[in-house]
Design a protein around this nucleic acid. Structure first.
Lengths: 238, 238
DNA sequence: TATTCCTTAATAAAACATTAATAATTTAAA
DNA sequence: TTTAAATTATTAATGTTTTATTAAGGAATA
């Protein structure tokens, strides 16, 4: 049984989250501002994840996260009312592991919570087993093992078709670099590209469906408008 | 006499399972939701196996399994109505030892129950006798002893032909790694491969018939579509 | 010579790739 | 700020490839 601390000054939201996550079998602790959250974290050594609103009276979510992170390595998911740029807000805040914008889709909430819990509880062992090099490529919590042809995202294995696998492998091997549709086609199919736009788009969509929690706000497989696609380089965090 | 707890909110299914397993000589205990199941497990120290429906009111099967597993190491077989992706559902749930999709074939039900009971009651001793290394290769409850040329699956010896044995040995020695049909042919026959597709496919089928409970949903010998075959690495579970 | 095993062939089933049509975004221009 | 053009996203269908299955004939083995 995992314990999740939910922190939001809006009691309706806390209640809703409690219902959604309760059904999933999680045990919920509640706080209504940052100060309360800090006290609860201090007194409960066994909290597995924190859901933290950004906008709160007394102590805002980002400061709260930073204070908690001084002492503990608990995963934190930030909640924010504004549907602002996912990347920007997430980037502002070193403390958070993930980010959800309100109003949120319950299924997405559950998926992100499960993903972080999985990551926190199992991932260490998986990541340890695999070393970059030796046909293993990674970006953040996306790991490709070309020996076993396995793709693991946030601790969970994902099944790709051969073409999907080849595209993802190519982009992850060269993470951070943007490739045009033509370049992707020619590298993966090893032949000239003609009207390849759509065929790549369809495969990209299928890959996103499998590796991204929310394919509309991809974390790994990003489009650079007018140029092409890349796998975000989520490794070297300084 | 072994005691099996059957948990499903559909009383028809509980009754049917009782009939099938009763004929096999098992003693059946019944529960109709997760909460009832927990009470029975608490009050009966001598339950040897649990059959647990995934979709149930009050407390779902996966949560129930996790709660039971906190205190006991009883084998659990999950039942699910949807014929969804076996791997996905099984992966979601660390607590379960096996998985059956409804509607199920009575023979498969019996085979899986017998297999788990055998495993639970005898396997410790077999696995102890054999040590990896010394020509002994294994994955989960599949054990190959190359000294005695024996293949043991879930506590039961299985007879393979020489070619079948060589293919299985090659894949199990290198479990987790995916080999193309050509690679398998060249490693096992030690000669160039031409149109080897079908010959391998036929042997694979024969091996599956012998080592898998349900060859259509193989647990050990898996295909990676478009790439090849592998023996799933079922050992290192953390 | 009888039996077991391997291979081939033909067919079925499943998984996957591609295409096409349409919708939604983004960017840049009016 | 609106509109238009370009680019990417999405969905469903159709076609292709790969694997699975079955059965039968031939080779090896006892």
């Amino acid at each position: 049984m995992y314990n999740i601390l939910v922190v939001d000054d809006d009691k309706e939201i806390v209640k809703a989250v409690e219902i959604y996550l309760g059904k999933e079998g999680y045990n919920i602790l509640k706080a209504y501002n940052g100060v309360e959250a800090l006290k609860i974290v201090e007194n409960n050594p066994d909290i597995h994840l924190i859901l933290l609103d950004v906008m709160m009276p007394k102590l805002d979510g980002i400061s709260t996260a930073n204070l908690i992170r001084k002492n503990k390595a608990i995963p934190i998911i930030m909640l924010s009312a504004k549907s602002e740029d996912y990347d920007k807000i997430a980037g502002l805040n070193n403390g958070a592991d993930d980010y959800i914008t309100k109003p949120f889709n319950p299924l997405e909430l559950i998926a992100r919570v499960n993903s972080q819990i999985r990551r926190y509880t199992h991932l260490g062992s998986i990541a340890d087993k695999m070393q970059e090099g030796d046909g293993v490529y990674s970006s953040g919590d996306l790991i490709i093992n070309d020996n076993t042809k396995q793709v693991i995202v946030e601790g969970k294995e994902v099944k790709l078709t051969p073409t999907e696998y080849n595209i993802l492998k190519f982009l992850t091997k060269n993470k951070g670099i943007v490739y045009s549709i033509e370049q992707i086609y020619e590298n993966v199919w090893e032949e000239e590209s003609y009207g390849a736009e759509n065929i790549i788009a369809v495969h990209i969509r299928h890959i996103r469906e499998k590796i991204e929690i929310n394919p509309k706000e991809p974390k790994y497989l990003k489009v650079i408008w007018g140029i092409g696609y890349k796998i975000e380089n989520l490794n070297e965090k300084n």
